[in-house]
Design a protein around this nucleic acid. Structure first.
Length: 290
DNA sequence: GGGAGTGTTGAGGT
DNA sequence: TACCTCAACACTCC
């Protein structure tokens, strides 16, 4: 017998993965009511875990929004659950009769006999319950830069921000304050696309380069969202993995492989304690050296 | 079999 | 202020 199982979420969620999760989960939980909550690892919850259970029990999922890499679950009763998947967080919706995974930490019982389960091997993910409309008061959301869309992410502002920074571009793009949603993988990709060395100081980037970088960030994230949109759910037995990450990356994880543009082997270095991939020929460091 | 590597974010230090 | 380093944790790889 084929067990129908839907897993939503992949490894290392960046904005496109979180958006894919948002779309997939929206279909699965909207209008369902929470009849109970089990916290198997209470530290996932920011704030009082008992209060979390008490507040959410009986509430209905109204919709799911997203801000950067944060999911915003909107509930009846003016409640919003802010959820960050960090490294390996995953949500799935399964029949309550299916055995729990070893790393399932939060279980929401739903009124149709299914469960929304939060799974996270490294336990880094966090959930925070707030009154709807006050989520921007959370330090994490308050510091977020604009969403990477043409309407909200503006070249001139981007350029002004970069001119102010002394750190290197890779680190700046990762910190979420200039623009929200980029993680280690897509930062390497967009810098390769734009032919900018990851250790270029922000203030050394020209206006023209800033423009290209800006366009590539929007382009690449949208392309990734589209690519993931086709694989939202699977039919499978236990331990099914969803292949969200088999999309066409050009540098990330390609150490030693030929650059898609010039065939020079891709190099891997460490920048700001993060593995960083680039093409030494296409992405030259043109530093003014101090 | 032990130690390094994996990457997101926040806390704490300078 | 702005920037840097490390801890949170578990598993894989060499």
């Amino acid at each position: 017998m084929i067990i129908k199982k839907r897993v939503v979420g992949g490894k290392m969620p960046e904005l496109p993965e979180v958006e894919t999760v948002r779309r997939g989960l929206s279909e699965l939980v909207t209008d369902k009511q929470i009849t109970g909550i089990e916290l198997l690892y209470p530290k996932i919850i920011q704030g009082d875990p008992q209060e979390f259970i008490k507040e959410l029990t009986g509430k209905k999922f109204e919709k799911i929004d997203r801000r950067g890499k944060y999911l915003l679950f909107r509930f009846s009763g003016e409640l919003t659950m802010v959820s960050h998947l960090r490294m390996e967080g995953k949500y799935s919706v399964k029949s309550s009769e299916m055995p729990l995974d070893k790393h399932t930490h939060v279980v929401f019982d739903l009124d149709d006999g299914t469960q929304l389960r939060y799974n996270d091997v490294r336990k880094f993910g966090r959930m925070h319950l707030v009154k709807t409309g006050t989520e921007d008061d959370l330090a994490a959301l308050k510091k977020l830069g604009p969403e990477p869309t043409p309407e909200t992410f503006l070249v001139d502002e981007f350029y002004q921000e970069l001119q102010k920074k002394k750190k290197v571009i890779k680190t700046a793009l990762l910190d979420q304050t200039i623009v929200a949603g980029l993680g280690n993988i897509y930062v390497d990709e967009v810098l390769w696309m734009t032919k900018i060395h990851p250790e270029t100081k922000c203030f050394e980037i020209t206006y023209e380069q800033t423009q290209k970088l800006h366009d590539n960030i929007i382009l690449e994230l949208n392309r990734a969202i589209k690519a993931h949109g086709t694989t939202v759910f699977t039919f499978a037995g236990a331990n099914a993995e969803i292949g969200l990450f088999q999309n066409q990356l050009n540098v990330y994880g390609k150490k030693g492989e030929p650059c898609a543009r010039c065939q020079t082997p891709i190099e891997k270095i460490v920048v700001g304690q993060r593995g960083t991939h680039f093409c030494p020929h296409c992405q030259k460091l043109i530093s003014v050296a101090s």
